[in-house]
Amino acid sequence: MLRTTPLLRQLPATLQTSRTAAASLTPLARKQQSNQQQVRCAHAISNPTLANIEKRWEAMPPQEQADLWMALRDRMKVDWNELTLQEKKAAYWIAFGPHGPRAQAPPGEGTKIFIYTILGVVAAGALFGFTRYFARGSPRSMNKEWQEATNEYMKENKIEPISFVGGEDYKGPGAVQSGPKPKE
């Protein structure tokens, strides 16, 4: 479709101010100008083509997207000051706008991620708890009385004297890390 619409000649910046102005050129004038300068592909793309590109881009078929981008790329081969404002905006939006690979996450994505992660953690914890439920109990030595006896044993035998219980000046829990022995 694009190839059949006549391409506007590059107009001086003073004349090109609004979207409607470009449409005022008569078809004859357009044809004449395009005949004169066939050598360089520096034809301004029409405003209707570019209007609302942000809203229309997703809906355009890929071939049309490709054609429009090719046309814009050809336009960008000249000094960029010659581009119309619409072209500049369109080119920027197609290249860097939030669509395709740069699309922003839909709203609520963060919450969704968080919820599913927590669900995964809970599921893993449930599985862990289930397997631990059937586990053998803790060893005979994991209670306070035993561990206090371990502290005594370490003092007598001078085990770890420099930084732990074995030495004289150690103040701290030592080997004690469990609660008291449960009543039989």
């Binding site: 708890g129 631990r132 439920y133 994991m142 770890e160 420099i162 732990f164 890390q177």
Partner: peptide
């Protein structure tokens, strides 16, 4: 299963992270 803290037997210190003396 919440109370079954691991005693790292290589260091006589419970939860020891650094080297033995």
């Amino acid at each position: 299963f919440f109370y079954n803290l691991t005693l790292y037997c290589d260091a006589p210190q419970p939860w020891g992270l650094y080297f033995q003396d």
